[in-house]
C-alpha cells in the first residue's frame, strides 16, 4: 500500500463536506490558540466528522472524541487533514 504524503495545505477541517470525516494531520495558529485546539483533543491522528454548519454558515460543529466542538471556519482552516483516509490504525 502506498501511503500518500500525510498532509496537504489545501485540505483542512473547513473543507470537509457536511457529514464528511477526516483525520487530523497538523494543527497551526498562534501558540495560545494552537495549544487550546490540541488540548481540546484535535491531535494528529484523531478522526472527526463535520456534523453541521450553523444557520448563518459559520461556526461549524465537529464531532470528535465522543463530543461536539464548535469552531469558526477561521480556526477550522488551521487544522490540516490527512488526504484520504489512508492513515489508519491510530485510534481504536
Amino acid at each position: 500500500m502506498v501511503i500518500k504524503k500525510a498532509m496537504s495545505s489545501s485540505h483542512t477541517l473547513a473543507d470537509l463536506p457536511k457529514g464528511g470525516t477526516g483525520t487530523v494531520a497538523t494543527v497551526g495558529g498562534d501558540p495560545r490558540l494552537r495549544r487550546r485546539l490540541l488540548e481540546m483533543g484535535l491531535t494528529p491522528g484523531c478522526p472527526l466528522t463535520l456534523v453541521r454548519r450553523a444557520p448563518l454558515g459559520d461556526p461549524l460543529v465537529f464531532n470528535l472524541r465522543g463530543y461536539d466542538l464548535s469552531l469558526r471556519s477561521a480556526e477550522a482552516r488551521l487544522v490540516g487533514l490527512t488526504t484520504g483516509n489512508l492513515v489508519a490504525g491510530i485510534r481504536p
Binding site: 490558540l33 487550546r36 460543529v61 463530543y67 461536539d68 466542538l69 464548535s70 477561521a74 480556526e75
Partner: peptide, 12 residues
C-alpha cells in the same frame, strides 16, 4: 487584530 478564536464545546 485577527478575530479571537471561537472554540466552544456543545454539551449533550
Amino acid at each position: 487584530v485577527a478575530s479571537t478564536p471561537f472554540i466552544l464545546e456543545l454539551p449533550s
